[in-house]
C-alpha cells in the first residue's frame, strides 16, 4: 500500500500537492489532469524517487529510503515511448523484465524462464518471441511492455498514456487487460491518461489534478464525465 501525506509535486514551482492519499492493492487508479499540471512529473518521481522526506511511504517504510535496486522490485513504469529496436527480439525485451533479479552477467535461471513463459502465455505473446521489436504492431508492442512489467513482478504498475497510438478496439483490449491484471495479480495500478472516457470505464478510482487549488482529489468511479472535466479543466 502506498501512502502519501502532505506531499508536494514539482521541481522549482509547486505543481500540485497531495494532502492525504492511500493506494490499495487490487485497484486501478486513473490519473486525470490537463497538460502541464504534473501528471508525468508525479509518475517519474514515483519511479525514480525525489520526494521530500516523510511524505511518501510504501508498506510502512519511507519510499525514499528504499534503494534503487529495491525499488525496481516494487514498481514498474510503462511509458509509450519504446518504438522497438531493430535487433532486439521480443523474447530479449521480455527477459529484461527479470533484470533486477539476475546475477552479475544477467543470465536467466530456470525460474526466470518459467516466469517469462507464464506471463507471455497469459498475454498471448509466445508466437512473437523471435520477431524483432521494431516489426511489432503498436498493439503488440503495448502488450509486450505490459508483459515485461508483469515479468518484473512488482506490486505497483504505473502506466503513462497506455492507449495512445492504438485503434479503438485495441484500446479497449489493453484497458481490459490492465484491469483484469490488477484484480487477478492484486496490483496497484496507476494510469495517467487524457483518454478520460475510456479510462474512467475501467478504473476503480479517479485521481483528479485541480489546477486552481493545486490539489489532487481522489474520487470513486461514480463521478460523471462532466464533473471530472470541470475539475481538471476549469474555465
Amino acid at each position: 500500500m502506498f501512502k502519501f501525506q502532505n506531499c508536494v509535486i514539482g521541481y522549482q514551482s509547486v505543481l500540485f500537492s497531495i494532502d492525504e492519499l492511500s493506494l490499495v492493492s487490487g485497484n486501478v487508479y486513473a490519473l486525470f489532469g490537463a497538460n502541464g499540471t504534473g501528471k508525468s512529473t508525479f509518475l517519474h518521481k514515483l519511479a525514480l524517487g525525489g520526494f521530500q522526506k516523510k511524505t511518501v511511504a510504501f508498506d510502512e517504510q519511507e519510499w525514499e529510503q528504499y534503494t534503487v535496486k529495491e525499488r525496481t522490485k516494487l514498481l514498474t513504469f510503462i511509458d509509450n515511448k519504446f518504438q522497438g529496436q531493430h535487433f532486439l527480439t521480443t523474447k530479449e525485451y521480455l527477459a529484461l523484465g527479470r533484470f533486477p533479479y539476475t546475477g552479475y552477467f544477467g543470465g536467466l535461471s530456470l525460474n526466470d524462464e518459467q516466469i517469462i513463459n507464464q506471463y507471455s502465455e497469459e498475454l498471448c505473446l509466445e508466437h512473437l518471441f523471435e520477431s524483432s521489436t521494431a516489426t511489432l504492431s503498436d498493439g503488440e508492442r503495448q502488450r509486450a511492455s505490459i508483459a515485461k512489467a508483469l515479468i518484473q513482478e512488482t506490486p505497483v504498475l504505473l502506466f503513462d498514456e497506455p492507449t495512445s497510438f492504438l485503434d479503438y478496439p485495441t484500446k479497449r483490449n489493453v484497458m481490459q487487460m490492465i484491469q483484469s491484471i490488477a484484480k487477478k495479480h492484486n496490483k496497484i495500478v496507476v494510469i495517467a491518461s487524457h483518454d478520460i472516457e475510456l479510462c474512467s470505464e475501467f478504473s476503480d478510482h479517479f485521481m483528479l489534478i485541480d489546477p486552481i487549488k493545486k490539489k489532487l482529489l481522489l474520487t470513486d468511479n461514480k463521478t460523471s464525465l462532466q464533473e471530472i472535466v470541470s475539475v481538471i479543466n476549469p474555465t
Binding site: L48, K69, R71, K81, F82, Q85, L96, F99
Partner: peptide, 11 residues
C-alpha cells in the same frame, strides 16, 4: 538498449 531512462528504471 531501451534508452537511458529505462535503464535507470531497471536499476
Amino acid at each position: 538498449v531501451l534508452g537511458e531512462q529505462n535503464a535507470a528504471l531497471l536499476g
